[in-house]
Design a protein around this nucleic acid. Structure first.
Lengths: 310, 310
DNA sequence: ACTGACCATTCTAATTTTGCGAATGGATGA
DNA sequence: TCATCCATTCGCAAAATTAGAATGGTCAGT
């Protein structure tokens, strides 16, 4: 027995309409073609009209059939909505949440977050898209994402920041790098070393360009890439330093591979990381649960990194 | 098997919600209580929530149950609408039409009309209420009738007369009555004979009172009744003449039992018979079919009566 | 013209689902 | 305590559905 309230006849008719033939629908539904055929004939009998036109290569909906299939699909949607409403009614945390995060989070707090969600809220399914801050903002505003965890989000009227934290500007170096021993460093001194940088597509690069454009004048020993992993690999080599955030390098900071050295220049303003949603509609209860777990994960990650440094 | 697309489980749940208990719903649906119980338990299993609260005297919907039953009712309405749409799509004449006619039509054109409708449009169902002209007008205006076939309908802004015909004022007599041989008669002469009259409740009486009030002064040999059948029986006896219309007496005029003798006085204005509808909304296609068949029946009836007299 | 591949449809048998009726136990009111 | 109503379970029969085999039609390729 299939656990669906929509009658089999309507479901079969719907699939035949989509597939174009009984045989293909049968394969897709894993049901005998004859069963589908019989149900459709019966449906046509009950309704008193042909729902499909039998053509050589299969079946095509008649206008009557289109009306019936449209109704079937509406019932299907009704059923799904009712099921979701009932779960909500029962206080069961269930739903689907779409998240946009950044590439740098993938090896950072994201796996921990996902595992915690799976453990604590098994019925909440997540869809995590990795993108840029701009892409995240667009997705939120465009309704294709529910929550975003991103760096340096510019204030926007249509987005609502639920939480944010400052990330001191600094550089990350291999533990044995000469800079690693410093409690802080001036930018001037820092650029005396080879630098691995993220490309313009990444927000941190734009941040640096607006504040320290001179970094990018010709003659500087700079490697530019859009791959954070490559930046980290270069930094891990001990030859380069990387301008990135504690959060970007959290795993390596925690395991001692990297050291974070703040840049003390006055103009070295911190970056930010935030959890944001579409400001024009309330977050669902499920969404708030996800946002809370996400936020706590980021905050815990930062706390851990900062405790390690102290 | 019941020819409904809405699953039995939903239909049963709906009825239990309405009836308040499985036992009562079982009686109303003519289904075993255990079958209903089984279907409801199954539905609760599929949806994962209780739909009913079992109380001492039966069952009460839970909020979840209310949502499901609401959906079931929506599906039921969807199904009915879809069925009607499909019939419309097929060009099949189907529907339900409510007609108001007059008592005098019952033995006149009505049976012929109903038989023709049954023969030519088996899917159009008729609801025929016998009433007065006033009642018919009220029913049309009040939306409880679609079409009326009535005498002497006063013009009303909210009613639309599709067709009408004049009915000469005259008296109906038994074939052997002295008046029967006349081509026409004066009112003065006519009232020299015993008269069978319809009572005030009937439109023809009101017609006479407004035009020939003296008929009802004391001393006249008048029998008054609200029964047309009684009026006809008295006329059939040969002792009385009846003031009524060709249409009222059409069957007897056609079979020779009665003769119609017009009254030639100047004040003897004709009655009218008309087919009318509610003027504020268009008649459906089905309604127009009915009106057309009805109108043709009345017209044919009159033609036949008049041909017979010539 | 023939052949292979796809199709819808029918039929028989097996399986599943549904409904009936009897029985059980609980709650309530007299 | 008893009668009456209720929901629920169970065994059985009837009905419905599905699977699988078989049939015949259409079409594209050879």
């Amino acid at each position: 027995m299939v656990s669906s309230l929509v009658p089999a006849a309507l479901r079969y008719a719907d699939q035949v309409a989509r597939s174009g033939s009984i045989q293909r629908a049968a394969k897709e539904l894993n049901v005998a073609a004859s069963a589908i055929n019989r149900q459709i004939l019966q449906l046509e009998g009950i309704l008193g009209v042909p729902l499909f036109e039998r053509v050589a290569k299969g079946m095509r909906l008649t206008p009557a059939g289109d009306a019936v299939v449209t109704m079937a699909r509406r019932w299907h949607a009704d059923e799904r909505r009712a099921a979701a409403d009932l779960q909500q009614l029962q206080g069961i945390h269930q739903g689907h949440v779409r998240l946009v995060a950044m590439d740098s989070h993938v090896n950072g707090f994201l796996p921990t977050f996902v595992l915690q969600m799976a453990r604590e809220h098994p019925r909440i399914s997540l869809e995590i898209e990795i993108g840029s801050t701009d892409a995240a903002a667009a997705a939120l505003a465009g309704g294709t994402a529910d929550i975003a965890a991103v760096f340096n989000l510019s204030p926007r009227r249509d987005l609502h920041v639920l939480w944010n934290a400052e990330l001191p500007f600094g550089c990350v170096t291999a533990a044995g790098h000469p800079v690693a021993a410093r409690k802080s460093i001036s930018l001037q001194e820092a650029v005396g070393y080879p630098i691995a940088l993220q490309s313009r597509a990444l927000m941190i690069r734009r941040y640096l360009e607006t504040r320290h454009g001179w970094l990018f004048t010709e003659g500087q020993k700079v490697v530019e890439t859009n791959s954070l992993q490559l930046v980290k690999a270069l930094a891990r080599s001990g030859h380069y330093i990387a301008f990135t955030s504690e959060l970007d390098a959290a795993p390596e900071l925690l395991d001692g591979t990297f050291t974070f050295v703040p840049v003390r220049d006055k103009g070295a303003e911190p970056q930010t990381v935030c959890v944001a949603i579409d400001g024009r509609k309330p977050l669902t209860r499920i969404g708030r649960i996800v946002a809370e777990v996400l936020t706590r994960n980021i905050a815990d990650c930062l706390d851990e990194v900062r405790r390690k440094r102290a």
